[in-house]
Design a protein around this nucleic acid. Structure first.
Lengths: 170, 170
DNA sequence: ACTTTATGTCAGTCTTGTTGACATTCCAAT
DNA sequence: ATTGGAATGTCAACAAGACTGACATAAAGT
């Protein structure tokens, strides 16, 4: 199964053979790039007592203000218990506000406070700067290809969650 | 800093404006895609008592047989203590062999056993299948762009480590 | 009214990252 | 030749953030 037999790919005008070696290079590139992708926010988060989990929560609360815990769970793909620990500290530190639902009192609606929004901006700015630099270096056509491959790499459910976010956000 | 002011990017024949919204979409795509990227190996690893850390170690030992612990450290970007715990279990389970260096007896050279190579193949096959499918769906031009953006996103040191691996491996 | 379902919280465990302390080996300077 | 420092790897203890299980509360269905 792991031999060097190439798999043909038809696309555009050219014929591409995907060797295991080429695929492995893609895999390793993904690994190293993701580290770069998270490096800048991680540095900022380490200064305060936060981690990547806090960043993710803050990001998506900013993206969809008033979202519920359950909603966030579906997007983040972790257990509610795991998310809860993170939210508890963010609420205790005054970065996130949790409002009991008016229609359904079981639900908690989540919002960033001013301090929370400030941290979100700081983290996003750092991450966007890296992204912008990479986009600039690679050029717009490469960016289009980048996005195509990423979307093809997601799970179906993720793709749905992502499309939902994309539609709601733009 | 987080307003909607677009940043112009010149590349190819077209002029692209990168809004914060577009960059955020790229960031979220990266997040969701990485989950997809690791999902299949994670499932396999969960069946045995292993995690992603074991996968990474096995991957790079397979990639560069006879590499030292220190070498692996530089690539993986974790502390030697953290790697050591993972290696200890892999050695105890007979997936990895550790040979004391002949020239420098402080060094341990790492190799996969047959069982280790079998697991590596199983994990790699799963991950390559996902990658191959994504590449197929996106097409060869998209793949080239994908790789360009990923390489621009890495840290300089990572890029060096990656280039070294790439050269040695192909 | 009673049961079932949904949402969120609390407690405990596991993986995997961290730092600190240490043994061994090598190398360089005396 | 010896000694002191640097490099390599191991052991132990701790922290972050995943997980499962048990539970409280609120809503919905019978």
């Amino acid at each position: 199964m792991s031999d060097a037999r190439p798999s043909p790919v038809f696309g555009g005008e050219s014929l591409l053979f995907l060797t295991d070696e080429q695929l492995r290079q893609g895999i390793e590139a993904m690994f190293f790039a993701y580290r770069g992708f998270t490096a800048d926010p991680d540095r900022i988060l380490a200064e305060m007592a936060y981690g990547r989990a806090h960043h993710r929560a803050i990001h998506f609360i900013n993206r969809a203000p008033g979202t519920t815990v359950n909603n966030l769970l579906a997007i983040l793909g972790v257990t509610k218990q795991s998310l809860n620990r993170v939210l508890r500290t963010l609420i205790a530190d005054g970065l996130v506000e949790s409002r009991v639902g008016t229609q359904d009192k079981r639900e908690r609606h989540l919002f960033l406070t001013e301090a929370g929004a400030a941290l979100e901006a700081k983290l996003s700015d750092a991450q966007r700067a890296r992204m912008r630099a990479a986009y600039k270096e690679a050029g717009p056509e490469a960016v289009a290809g980048f996005r195509q491959v990423l979307e093809a790499m997601m799970d179906r459910e993720m793709h749905r969650a992502y499309a939902k976010l994309r539609d709601s956000g733009s």
